[in-house]
Design a protein around this nucleic acid. Structure first.
Lengths: 141, 141, 141, 141
DNA sequence: TTTT
DNA sequence: TTTT
């Protein structure tokens, strides 16, 4: 016993969430998240990007599939989990994922709406941010 | 002995940073930061805002005074410190502050530049974010 | 909108939790928590202690009242909340608290049992730690 | 750009740190860390352990090699990094590590001393905890 | 594979 | 491979 296993990320989705429905009816969503760090080396600005495998379960997966899309900036809180699997050649491999326990969209108001087909959105003012939290891991509205 | 004292905030500056230079030449900056939470009560969307007193020292204060302004969205990492002071009526009072150890601007590219007097900025595209990190607590460029 | 408000503490309880039952039957517990930091100044080891007001609600308050006592080492995750109140002289005052959302006892096995009146506890081996988590904010067993 | 990549762990070392000195004189240390979670399933207490690869650089590696040993309870703060390497069969593999930026021993006073060969240690009192922090990533004393 |  |  004795443990804290916590991950806090702010980054952009590299792809739309991929949603699967397991046999028991459980929903799982996953997507890659990029967190980038900028630092200075010999006067040049270097950007280093780290990619994370994000996994969400149940209600949180449902919310993610509805409100998160490729490119969005998101705060994610979760825990690390390394699991093994067999690839196509039956070789045992390991992958480390971040199992999300909570997420919040960081961005402008338009980022909080599910994408629509309609054109002609209202112009946005400079400082128009908003967010969406799902502390309970379930639908927030 | 034995202690972790860590605060993680993402919110908007309520005012421009207020910068002071202490006798020994040390720079201190401070500003209020709002973190808002939205939840559902009886079908209505309630927004609850919490205000935090942010304090930054030395190099981090210099960076803050240059790159942070009222309204900007920022990630702040720091620690809690409660200090006492005497108000004008000589009454002892307590205030809890977040002493920043690190911050990152979260927002669009324009948010990374110090404010300029020139008018006529270039139009921004929808999904234009960027950030600025100062892990070492000193000027990052 | 847009906010993350997160506090992570590891420290010792300064007192036993104080438990109150509100009118609606809701349980609230609170206790002071010390987080200490040791640093070096001119070759001398300086210890600086920060005190935090911890507040717990409902099921988490019940668990805390049962398993936490003065002196125990605990990991606490929560959020900052500043509230105002009137003191006995009707002066408006402010206090900043950490509203716990989760806690974990860090310590040896004996620290996980509610205190008993019986004497003569079993001797402990050198490296005997264990912990107790309450992720859901409710009774964990 | 735009990124926060933060990991917070509390767990026990599965092995003593393994220290290497790279060509340029840089020190790297690494060890496995176990974080365990206990939960209830059908009235049975289930313990699930997650293993993390911890990597420390430079001064932090030196401190770790001196003060951390197998079995000790430690708080670690760092960031995720996934790197690829070729195994003996020239197969490309990936491993995700936690690059530590800070650590603190959590435990009793005896846990803060480097291990000694002498026998006959002084008995410890019940509530004797202490800690050791290395915020700057360098030797703290 | 994101973002700037 | 830790810890209880």
């Amino acid at each position: 016993m004795s443990g804290i296993n916590k991950v806090i990320l702010v980054g952009h989705l590299g792809k739309d969430p991929e949603v699967r429905h397991l046999d028991g009816g459980v929903t799982v969503a996953s997507f890659p998240l990029a967190t980038s760090e900028t630092y200075n080396k010999d006067g040049k600005r270097i950007e280093q990007t780290e990619w994370h495998n994000i996994v969400l379960w149940r209600g949180l997966a449902e919310v993610a599939s509805k409100y998160l899309q490729k490119g969005k900036l998101v705060y994610i809180e979760g825990k690390l989990r390394t699991r093994s699997f067999e690839d196509r050649e039956k070789v045992k491999k390991y992958v480390t994922e971040v199992v999300a326990e909570n997420f919040t969209i960081l961005g402008r108001k338009s980022d909080f709406e599910p994408p629509v087909s309609s054109e002609g959105t209202t112009p946005k003012s400079e400082n128009e941010y908003t967010n969406l939290t799902d502390p309970a891991g379930d639908l927030p509205f």
